[in-house]
């Protein structure tokens, strides 16, 4: 009986936390600051969560593209259709790996940092003191970070895909000798702009939003102690990863499910 009650309480806790995060989101998006104030803040966040994530994205994209090139070549050359390697690499990256891996890397690199930063601001009462100065931390601290993540992730995902395709071309065309014309030709005839590229961008927009939302919410809602911050950071990475993978399935089913 006790276990049942505990289980019910857990369920209620989860629902309450979901409700809090929704209200939190409404608070962040509801208030619009003056552009002259908001823009420099946004810029700073774009720098620290977007530009500074570029290195890890480029390096990972390059390696993933090269691995795709190698694996694709070995499999496709069995059927004598190694020219389809371009199409395979491009579709995998643009549809799936670009948005998904970028979001996972982003959650680990920038999301955890956001959570820790905001959590520490809460623990050291910086958020409280801001409130007491008549400045809403949701607008001043949280909103620029949320928007920056929302803007940065699609850009990072596009960069990831491009670098990956370039890496795949490096392996496939330069090293393994696939004919360059058929590499690009195959790719262009099979990748459709609306179905593949745009859907990939939509995915990365959704992932960017969800990852940053989870990160800033976990920071804002953390228990203000060092243990609280560390568990919030862990939660950010775990929840973001699960949310990205789960949402990816749902989005893929919706976008590509009809054929």
């Amino acid at each position: 009986m006790d276990k049942l009650a505990a289980f019910g309480r857990l369920g209620l806790d989860i629902i309450a936390s979901l409700g809090r995060s929704g209200r939190f989101l409404a608070g962040v998006l509801g208030g619009v600051s003056k552009p002259s104030v908001a823009f420099p803040l946004l810029l700073k966040q774009l720098y620290s969560i977007g530009v500074l994530s570029l290195a890890i994205i480029v390096v990972s994209g390059l390696f993933i593209g090269m691995v795709l090139g190698l694996q694709g070549y070995t499999i496709l050359s069995d059927y004598g259709s190694e020219a389809a390697i371009g199409q395979m690499i491009a579709l995998t990256l643009v549809r799936e790996l670009g948005p998904v891996v970028t979001a996972l890397l982003f959650a680990g690199r920038a999301g955890s940092a956001l959570t820790a930063e905001i959590g520490l601001m809460k623990t050291t009462e910086q958020l409280s003191s801001m409130e007491m100065m008549g400045v809403d931390p949701l607008r001043r601290v949280i909103a620029p970070r949320l928007w920056a993540g929302f803007i940065a992730v699609p850009i990072l995902a596009a960069v990831f895909s491009v670098v990956g395709i370039w890496g795949g071309m490096l392996v496939g065309v330069e090293w393994l000798g696939v004919f360059e014309g058929s590499f690009w030709g195959n790719m262009q005839s099979s990748v459709s702009f609306t179905n593949d590229v745009l859907n990939g961008v939509i995915k990365s927009v959704v992932f960017g939003f969800v990852c940053t939302w989870i990160a800033v919410y976990q920071g804002y809602d953390c228990v203000p102690t060092s243990a609280g911050i560390s568990s919030a950071t862990t939660k950010t990475v775990v929840y973001s990863s699960l949310a990205v993978l789960g949402l990816d399935f749902v989005l893929t089913a919706v976008m590509f499910g009809d054929f």
Binding site: L120, M121, T124, E125, Q126, S128, S129, M130, E131, M132, M133, G134, V135, D136
Partner: peptide, 19 residues
């Protein structure tokens, strides 16, 4: 509430400077 708080100053026990 935020408008009212503009008329208040509060010194926090921990200082709470923006780091």
């Amino acid at each position: 509430l935020y408008r009212l708080r503009e008329k208040m100053g509060m010194l926090f026990q921990s200082g709470a400077l923006f780091t």
